[in-house]
C-alpha cells in the first residue's frame, strides 16, 4: 500500500515534459518535414494538398475569430449587426472540420481507444492496424459517395443561405473532399503497413512515436 502511494507521488517525467513543453516543439506538426505515402508525382501532389489543408486550418480559425469580433464591432460602433456573420462561421466550421479530418489522418491524430490494441503482441497489432485502416478507409469512401449525393441534391434543390443568399452547397462541398482525402490516407496507411516493417498509425507516424504511455494497461 505504502509503495503504491509513493508510486503515485512520482510524476512521470515524460508526461511532465510534454505537458510543460511551451510553444512550438514536438507537439506542433512541422509541415516541411511531412513525407507523403505516395510515390513520384502523386507524392508531390499529396504534399501540396497537405500544405493546403494546414493553411486552410490556420486561416479558417483566424477568420472565425475576426468574423465573430466584426459582428460585435458592427453592433456597437455602427449600430448594425452583420447578419451574415453566423453563416460565415457555419461555412468556416465545415471547412475546418473537413480539412482537419484528413490532416489528422495524415498525422495519426484521430482519437481512438488503444488500451487493448497496445497490449497485443506486435504481429497481431500489425494485422489489426491493417484491418482498422482498411475498414476506416472503406467507411470514409462510402461517406464520400453519399456526401457527393447530398451536395448534388442540395445543388439541384437550389437551397440558399438566408442571409448571404448564396447556394448552400457552396459551403458543404468540403465534406466529400474531406472524406475522400481521409479515406485515401487510411488506405495508404494499410498499404504502408503491408509493405513496410513496423507498425504505422498513419503514413508518416510510427506507432509509439507520440503517445504510447508507459503506465497504461
Amino acid at each position: 500500500m505504502r509503495s503504491e502511494q509513493q508510486d503515485h507521488e512520482k510524476v512521470d517525467p515524460d508526461v511532465l515534459a510534454r505537458a510543460q513543453a511551451p510553444a512550438l516543439d514536438e507537439d506542433d506538426i512541422d509541415d516541411s518535414k511531412y513525407v507523403s505515402g505516395l510515390p513520384g508525382v502523386l507524392g508531390v501532389v499529396d504534399v501540396a494538398i497537405a500544405r493546403i489543408e494546414a493553411i486552410l486550418l490556420a486561416v479558417g480559425v483566424l477568420a472565425m475569430a475576426v468574423n465573430t469580433m466584426a459582428n460585435v464591432v458592427g453592433r456597437f460602433m455602427l449600430g448594425q449587426s452583420l447578419f451574415f456573420s453566423e453563416e460565415v462561421n457555419r461555412a468556416l466550421i465545415i471547412l475546418i472540420t473537413f480539412a482537419g479530418i484528413s490532416y489528422a489522418a495524415r498525422h495519426g491524430r484521430h482519437i481512438r481507444m488503444s488500451a487493448f490494441f497496445d497490449i497485443m503482441p506486435p504481429p497481431m497489432r500489425k494485422l489489426l492496424m491493417i484491418v482498422i485502416a482498411l475498414v476506416t478507409a472503406a467507411a470514409m469512401f462510402l461517406l464520400t459517395w453519399y456526401s457527393v449525393d447530398y451536395v448534388l441534391a442540395q445543388a439541384s434543390r437550389g437551397r440558399l443561405l438566408p442571409a448571404l443568399q448564396v447556394p448552400v452547397w457552396w459551403i458543404i462541398v468540403w465534406a466529400p473532399l474531406g472524406f475522400f482525402l481521409t479515406g485515401l490516407q487510411y488506405a495508404l496507411t494499410a498499404i504502408k503497413n503491408m509493405i513496410h516493417k513496423d507498425i504505422w498509425l498513419s503514413t508518416s507516424t510510427l506507432e509509439g512515436y507520440d503517445d504510447t504511455p508507459a503506465e497504461e494497461v
Binding site: I29, L56, I101, A104
Partner: peptide, 15 residues
C-alpha cells in the same frame, strides 16, 4: 502554428 493546431483539435472533436 497555434491556429493550425486549434483547427486540428477542432476537427477531430467535431467529426
Amino acid at each position: 502554428s497555434t491556429a493550425k493546431s486549434t483547427g486540428l483539435i477542432t476537427a477531430v472533436v467535431f467529426i
